[in-house]
């Protein structure tokens, strides 16, 4: 039993939490798992692992049906940022959440993330030639001319099979009715998806929300550089509104409550 196990057991026993969401190895694969007071010995199987799942999304789901439940979460840095966004958007109550933190993201002191990300294969030559490489920084994607940018991004979007995996895995995509399924906005029933509207809509929605966890890109079967796209969205948001999702605790500049439901972009 390690320290993490002790803490989780203690929390469960002392009723500080009713449920802990972490990982357990099943047939060689770390999978998200609920640990409960009733089955406390199972906590010995709790592992950190390299797996990344939007555990906070699962917590938000539990919260929506059991608002009284106190939930513990194994939180990597990205989970923590996502939790902050979910608090800001009232999807979770910070009073009900306890976290066991794992510091894992790259930092000046640490070159590599200790998680499943950053272990991706290098891009193939065709992608380098006519697409957008996944591991570029936003600035590097801006060296191309306007026309070339459009061609390169369109190539990437062309590959989309409209599986909605990016949205489904995303910890901060929590809308009851998703605009991506709105037939007035996006043409239905066809592949490829409407280029670039489908991806543009999602990108816009990630402003002030996306916490750069990269799960969407991991989930994307077409290997579209989604994280890069939303990173740019974040940079614009930071530049124009001085707001950083997941770290700034204030309301997002994109949420205006009340009757005024349509949001006009502020022009500077």
């Amino acid at each position: 039993m390690n320290m993490m196990h002790e803490i989780v057991k203690e929390w469960l026993e002392q009723e500080k939490i009713d449920l802990f969401i972490g990982y357990k190895v099943v047939d060689g694969h770390p999978l998200p798992c609920f640990f409960t007071r009733e089955n406390i010995d199972d906590v010995d199987n709790l592992v950190e692992s390299k797996a990344r799942y939007p555990l906070e999304k699962i917590a938000a789901k539990v919260y929506s049906t059991h608002p009284e439940m106190k939930i513990g979460i194994l939180a990597r840095d990205c989970n923590q940022r996502a939790l902050n966004v979910l608090y800001v958007w009232n999807q979770l109550d910070p009073e009900k959440i306890e976290t066991v933190g794992i510091n894992c993201c790259p930092s000046p002191a640490r070159e590599h993330a200790d998680c499943s990300y950053l272990e991706r294969e290098p891009s193939g030559p065709l992608k380098t030639l006519i697409g957008i490489e996944n591991n570029l920084k936003p600035e590097q994607a801006e060296v191309y001319s306007q026309e070339e940018r459009f061609k390169r991004w369109s190539y990437e979007f062309e590959k989309c099979i409209k599986c909605y995996g990016c949205r489904n895995i995303c910890p901060v995509c929590f809308c009851k009715e998703c605009s991506l399924e709105h037939s007035d906005l996006i043409k239905k029933g066809e592949l490829p998806v409407e280029i670039p509207i489908f991806h543009l809509v999602r990108a816009v929605h990630m402003a002030g929300r996306c916490i750069d966890c990269g799960l969407c890109e991991d989930a994307c079967p077409a290997n579209i550089p989604l994280r890069l796209l939303y990173r740019e969205v974040n940079q614009i948001t930071a530049r124009l509104f001085d707001y950083r999702a997941g770290t700034d605790s204030g309301q997002s500049p994109f949420s205006i409550l009340g009757e005024n439901v349509t949001l006009e972009p502020m022009s500077l």
Partner: peptide
């Protein structure tokens, strides 16, 4: 998706 990856390679 596999075919597209192959193509890119």
């Amino acid at each position: 998706g596999r075919i597209m990856t192959a193509k890119e390679k």
